[in-house]
């Protein structure tokens, strides 16, 4: 393989039900930086039907080019069709980097593409850097529940592929930019339809937008029970916040798994993060350390969570939270 034939940074633009996933925009933000440093184009590859508007959006968020396959069969994600189209485009255009969001689709798709192309793939990256001389992508991702960080290189195969955790990279400011939209063939055959989606069951309980939430009230083992978790929900509601939970709290059955924040759960970066009864195990901290303002409430003044908090309160939650709720209600009533 002649590595020099491979040029350009690609981002898989994931759409769900006609809307772009936010992580795709985040990847464009990072991809733009990488492409500029490598002095190459940033290309988004989008599969979907009637997605012209999305192509423009991708350009507005930083793409130089959008490769778009337009076909009714691409409206829904399918492992086989998506793998086939993207892998064949890569073989034709030879990008040096392909970034994919570590979503349920991305994690299904990226390994399949990597295997087909025989190239390397890192998972759930939280940081990407480039060595401009060697053009090697330094892919850093957590292992062992965030207890270790590993930096991975793909020295001899191309493209260098990485899935990236949603919520970690920052999208660019949206602005009107110039870019090229290139139509690519879908070329779907019957044999690519081996798996079909019969129906979708949306569950509101699944944390819609926990990653995007601006405010999160989160609970750990110190909360103590399902009932108390409901009280936390009340506090969250008054603050206009989403409820999050640690892995232990989820495993204790106090919160559903979609609420889990941390290495095995979601990565969040809200403006406000209130950690209640959370000791601050690394596995949790990796998922929320970039919160803008962190307030920690715990009975144990030695809990590690206080080390990463801006404000700390050492108190019994069972007394403090009802009081907070009461004070908030009074404050809201007074306004």
């Amino acid at each position: 393989m002649s590595l020099n034939e491979y040029r350009g940074v690609w981002v898989f633009a994931e759409q769900n039900d006609g809307r772009l996933r936010r992580v795709s925009l985040e990847l464009l933000g990072k991809g733009r930086e990488l492409a500029d440093r490598l002095r190459v184009d940033l290309v988004a590859i989008l599969l979907g039907e009637d997605a012209g508007k999305l192509c423009t959006e991708l350009i507005d968020y930083g793409a130089d080019k959008v490769l778009w396959a337009d076909d009714p069969e691409l409206r829904c994600y399918r492992t086989d069709t998506y793998t086939k189209i993207i892998a064949s485009q890569i073989m034709e255009h030879k990008p040096e980097i392909l970034l994919v969001g570590a979503t349920y689709v991305g994690r299904d798709l990226a390994p399949r593409i990597a295997r087909r192309l025989g190239t390397g793939l890192s998972a759930d990256c939280t940081s990407l850097d480039i060595d401009e001389e060697t053009r090697l992508l330094q892919q850093t991702c957590p292992a062992f529940g965030g207890n270790l960080m590993v930096t991975i290189l793909t020295p001899k195969e191309r493209p260098q592929m990485a899935t990236v955790q949603p919520g970690v990279m920052q999208p660019l400011q949206k602005s009107t930019r110039k870019g090229e939209i290139i139509s690519i063939p879908a070329d779907i055959e019957h044999k690519d339809m081996r798996v079909s989606r019969l129906r979708v069951i949306e569950e509101t309980r699944r944390g819609i937008g926990l990653e995007q939430a601006e405010r999160i009230v989160s609970g750990g083992m110190g909360i103590g029970s399902v009932e108390n978790f409901k009280m936390l929900g009340k506090l969250a509601e008054l603050l206009g916040a989403e409820v999050g939970a640690t892995r232990n709290a989820v495993e204790a059955g106090w919160a559903s798994s979609d609420r889990m924040i941390g290495q095995t759960g979601k990565t969040v970066r809200p403006t406000l993060y209130i950690a209640c009864g959370i000791s601050g195990a690394i596995q949790h901290i990796v998922g929320m350390k970039d919160s803008e303002l962190t307030i920690a409430i715990s009975k144990d003044p030695k809990a590690p969570i206080f080390q990463i908090a801006d404000y700390g309160i050492v108190a019994d939650l069972h007394q403090l939270i009802p009081l907070l709720i009461q004070e908030l209600l009074r404050y809201k009533g007074a306004r």
Partner: peptide, 10 residues
Amino acid sequence: KETTARGKPI
């Protein structure tokens, strides 16, 4: 391991 005092695990 989990508990800290003066910023260091006890």
